[in-house]
Write a protein that binds this DNA or RNA. Structure first.
Length: 293
DNA sequence: GTCCAGTCGG
DNA sequence: CCGACCGGAC
């Protein structure tokens, strides 16, 4: 067994020996529930997703249920999870699943990738966790664990999607069930032990298989991760404020009330135009509303 | 201020 | 490849 394969087996064993009872890991959890959870988990921490996921699935237990309501209802139910385009994409995905896949979430990675809002991570996460298919799953946690344990550097740096998928593939056990445990285990390891700020190496199952540790924890010298712009005062904040107003109202919101939501006319107009262009908002009479179709 | 089970368009 | 995209928690 090569070094990488040893890593996969170790993490699978560590994960199988006990992990947090996340709802989407429960045996028999529906593929639709896994898909919804993965949309919600795109850049939103686990703890914030758990309560919203249950509400969503109680209301729309299958893709066809969501496909049957206007997209605006999905945006409204998304509430303040953030990045509301995900709600729009999830609705569009439910329509595509209903029309193209007979209402069944596809298991094929390429079919999943063709769905709106489904990228390299989500497609493989659904294939691996909902259907038990042996495919590498790479999210930010996996990227960090691979950077440290395999490449011996402290941070993953800019994304190198294809290369990281290939590396993860090499450490997956041949057996699909063990591969699933390895995928889930590396993610869990990165989230709970091999964390960005303060890794807890004393609890790490890879303590003797870590290139970063072997190298003496060298400081990261690669390209800096892109810096995030401040949220306060950004167009994102303005968009969020407008959408929050529309979500709170069953009727169209008059343009005059939108105008009162943000003092900078140019920024407010630009943000509203962006929401319209994105299909998150539509004109309704002399006001605006969530999308009715 | 930083980070978070990312995706998309330019 | 790079920036935009929400919002809450630490």
């Amino acid at each position: 067994m090569g070094a990488d394969a040893a890593i996969g087996e170790r993490v699978a064993a560590w994960f199988a020996s006990g992990h947090r009872p996340l709802p989407w890991r429960a045996p028999g959890y529906p593929a639709w529930g896994v898909l919804v959870s993965e949309f919600m988990l795109q850049q939103t921490p686990v703890a914030r997703v758990i309560p919203r996921l249950a509400e969503w699935l109680a209301r729309w237990p299958a893709p066809a249920d969501l496909a049957a309501v206007p997209a605006g209802e999905a945006v409204r139910a998304w509430d303040r999870l953030g990045y509301p385009r995900r709600a729009l994409n999830l609705h569009a995905a439910s329509v595509a699943i209903t029309e193209r896949h007979g209402g069944i979430v596809p298991s094929d990675v390429d079919a999943l990738l063709a769905l709106p809002g489904v990228g390299p991570y989500t497609a493989r996460a659904v294939a691996a966790f909902a259907y038990g298919i042996r495919v590498p799953v790479v999210d930010v946690n996996v990227r960090r664990v691979l950077a440290r344990a395999v490449r011996g550097v402290g941070e993953p740096g800019p994304a190198r999607t294809n290369e990281e998928l290939a590396v993860m593939e090499t450490l997956l056990p041949a057996d699909p069930e063990r591969a699933r445990l390895a995928n889930a285990g590396v993610m869990e390891l990165g989230q709970t032990v091999c964390t960005a700020r303060t890794p807890d190496c004393a609890r790490c199952p890879l303590v003797d298989h870590c290139a970063w540790r072997d190298a003496g924890y060298p400081a990261y010298t690669g390209p800096a991760a892109p810096r995030q712009k401040p949220y306060a005062g950004s167009d994102r904040e303005v968009r969020g404020r407008i959408l929050r107003e529309l979500r709170a109202s069953e009727l169209p919101v008059p343009a005059a009330r939108i105008a009162g939501l943000w003092p900078d006319d140019a920024q407010r107009d630009r943000s509203l135009a962006g929401l319209l262009a994105d299909g998150l908002v539509e004109a309704a009479g002399d006001g605006y509303a969530l999308p009715s179709s």
